[in-house]
Design a protein around this nucleic acid. Structure first.
Ligand SMILES: [Mn+2]
Ligand SMILES: [Mn+2]
Ligand SMILES: [Zn+2]
Ligand SMILES: [Zn+2]
Lengths: 140, 140
DNA sequence: ATTCTCTTTAGAAGAATTATAAACTATTGA
DNA sequence: TCAATAGTTTATAATTCTTCTAAAGAGAAT
């Protein structure tokens, strides 16, 4: 009943709502993902963090969990690099700065953004999403 | 001196300007890429097309050539799918519709597009490019 | 022609991701 | 409580895309 119970129970509730059993692994990954504000992770980076935080979880489970969380709407995928998949804990409408040099992402709120001049979607198709990626590099 | 000489010599000139020897393989790939209007290819798709057009070229050479052409400014990469790399013969400022179902791309001219509300690039960085991907799906 | 440099290629290797199937664990309900 | 059940984890193999290696081949220069 101390203040540390809240995060746990929030994550428990998220797992419950998603129909996922609150296993040791999912709780550990859920805490890493959702207790620290918005995050952009790859399977490898989250696995490393979990292991170095003392959680015993396999890379296969990290992949499974990221995909399950994504299907449950707790995460979304961000495509910015054809070499690896990023997962984003911010599921609201937003866009990204992508640092090509170190592979890091930062959010651009979707509220202020407006795109004008887009043609209609090709005949027979509907727009699923509009993604904007601003690729940046260190100046000098 | 017939009309078929023009495309060849255009591609020869492009290779020459890029400092690339006009080998049988580069000419064949260059013709497939540049004689048919704007194209979006993957290494695999271009290799298949080359082979079925009777050109004898290895997949490794297709990868090499796509990267060399990109470095020379004849192609650009488009990141829309974390599973494979697309190369685009349209090197002008433009954006894309991406059909997630069949992996096809189509161009959105950059001229008409305007994005408002973008924050400044993070401190110490410069914008290298802004990419807009409109993900579409078949309606119904 | 000879030589030099660049290019191609088969095959190995690398990296990210997914599949398999056996061991494990949470949940259920006797 | 305690099986029985269904869901989960994981080591390991497999897959896919891409890059590397090093030897053979081909264009360019002399
Ligand atoms: Mn995936
Ligand atoms: Mn590449
Ligand atoms: Zn984000
Ligand atoms: Zn294009």
């Amino acid at each position: 009943m101390d203040t540390n119970d809240r995060p746990y129970s929030q994550i428990l509730a998220r797992l419950r709502d998603a129909g996922l059993r609150p296993t040791r692994q999912r709780l550990a990954l859920g805490r890493l993902l959702f207790e620290a504000g918005d995050r952009h992770v790859t399977a490898e980076s989250l696995h490393e963090q979990a292991v170095s935080a003392g959680a015993s979880v396999s890379l296969a489970t990290v992949y499974n969990t990221l995909h399950q969380f994504t299907k449950a709407g707790l995460l979304r995928e961000v495509v910015v690099d054809s070499a690896r998949t990023y997962f984003d804990t911010n599921t609201s409408d937003h866009h990204h700065f992508f640092h090509e040099e170190d592979g890091s992402l930062s959010d651009i709120s979707g509220h202020a953004i407006e795109v004008t001049g887009l043609p209609e979607a090709p005949a027979g198709t509907d727009v699923a999403r509009v993604d904007i990626v601003v690729r940046v590099r260190s100046s000098r």
